[in-house]
Amino acid sequence: MNPAINPFVSSQDISKGERGLGKIASELQGSVYGIVCVTRENQAAPWINFESGALSRELDESMLAPFLLDLSVRDLAGPIAQFQATESESKEDVWALVKGINEKCSAGIEVERLEVLFNRFWNDLDRGLREVRSMQPEDVPPRSGYS
């Protein structure tokens, strides 16, 4: 929604053969906002706690937001439970996250315009999130490299 944002997704932006941890560390140095997608299945996985810890250390004054795909805030456990989480099923919660990210942008867009864009695309986002929530754990490829 904000063209000034240049997202980095570790599972997509690290090339085969590249040193994953080095790439993640390099990207974190220039980041001001981190989002960690959390599911019931992955919340206790070593890699999610590693990446969350790395994000929180590198971001310092910046933000780390757990994005809860199939669990609620009260079900969140482990080290990432200390951060204010966003429940993906709540339009209001997701809107608050979008506003928060925009506020951290050096080139944020006006809130009224952002809200129009958010409302325009919410149904598509919600549909995609419902699809993700309906996936069974065996449908999701395992994460490697952090055992």
Rank of each mutant, 00 (worst) to 15 (best):
I101C: 04
S90H: 06
I80W: 02
A4Q: 05
V9K: 08
S90L: 09
E89P: 03
S88I: 02
L28D: 04
E27T: 00
R74W: 07
I14H: 03
D60P: 00
I80E: 09
A54D: 04
A96C: 11
M135N: 06
E51C: 02
E112S: 14
K23E: 14
V36P: 00
P142R: 08
R120C: 06
I80S: 06
E61W: 09
R57Y: 10
Q82G: 09
G145V: 11
F67L: 15
N119E: 15
V132N: 05
R120A: 15
E58G: 07
N102W: 05
K16A: 15
D126H: 15
R133C: 01
V94L: 02
P137F: 09
R133A: 10
G53Y: 07
V111R: 15
C37Q: 07
L69G: 00
A65D: 05
S62M: 11
A54S: 09
A107D: 12
E41F: 11
L76G: 09
Q29G: 14
L125D: 00
I24P: 00
A54E: 15
Y33R: 00
V116C: 06
M135R: 15
Q84N: 05
K23C: 00
V116P: 00
E92Q: 13
A96L: 12
A85G: 07
N102H: 05
S90T: 08
N102T: 01
K23L: 05
F118I: 08
L76D: 03
V132E: 10
Q84Y: 05
S144A: 08
E112H: 11
R133I: 03
L68N: 06
A4F: 09
I101N: 01
V98H: 03
N123H: 14
V32R: 12
E110F: 10
E41T: 12
D75T: 05
A45L: 08
A4C: 11
L59H: 02
L97T: 01
W95S: 06
L21A: 09
M63N: 07
M63Y: 08
R74M: 10
P141Q: 07
P66M: 12
L114I: 07
G53C: 07
A77T: 14
N42C: 10
L71G: 06
V9H: 05
P141M: 09
G145K: 10
E51Y: 04
E58V: 03
L59W: 06
E115G: 10
M135A: 09
D60A: 13
